[in-house]
């Protein structure tokens, strides 16, 4: 991958984060991880991030609300949902409204994830902070 992609993954399942860490290590992506939305937000305050990948079902705050907040605070960050259980209606709604850039269901295919991240990177570089039509 050109340059170094900085990726933040949020999931309450530690094994998921470890698996994603292995993937990023092997793909040469810099990965930051967070076990909850609050932790992730504090990381985002400190570190520059290009892409955020979030689970949906998490304690305290769900993935959609979290990504919504990310969008309002750091609109240039590309947002991706990675989830094992979510209403299909909610996903399509979020995609249409521009809350998220992409959705990947769990369990995911490695190649699918790789493709999605590459597309997101291209999107990030091509666009300014407000490449997606705001509400």
């Amino acid at each position: 991958m050109p340059d170094t992609l900085r990726l933040l993954c949020v999931d309450d399942e530690e094994h998921i984060l470890k698996t994603l860490a292995r993937f990023c290590h092997n793909e040469g992506i810099t990965l930051l991880t967070a076990g909850s939305a609050a932790e992730a937000l504090s990381i985002l305050e400190r570190e520059p991030v290009m892409i955020v990948i979030s689970d949906y079902q998490m304690p305290e705050k769900n993935g959609l609300d979290f990504l919504s907040e990310v969008r309002s605070k750091w609109p240039q960050i590309i947002r991706i949902m990675l989830s094992g259980f979510i209403e299909p209606g909610a996903v399509s709604h979020a995609l249409q409204q521009g809350e998220i850039f992409g959705f990947l269901p769990k369990p995911w295919q490695r190649s699918d994830l790789k493709n999605l991240i590459q597309t997101a990177a291209v999107q990030y570089k091509a666009g300014t902070a407000t490449e997606r039509t705001p509400r």
Binding site: E13, H15, I16, T19, F23, N26, G84, K106, P107, W108
Partner: peptide, 18 residues
């Protein structure tokens, strides 16, 4: 149970890929 199953399946399959 989907969530509970999908998470382990998710990391199991991806770990296998790695």
């Amino acid at each position: 149970v989907a969530h509970d199953i999908n998470n382990p399946i998710g990391f199991v399959t991806n770990n296998l890929e790695e």
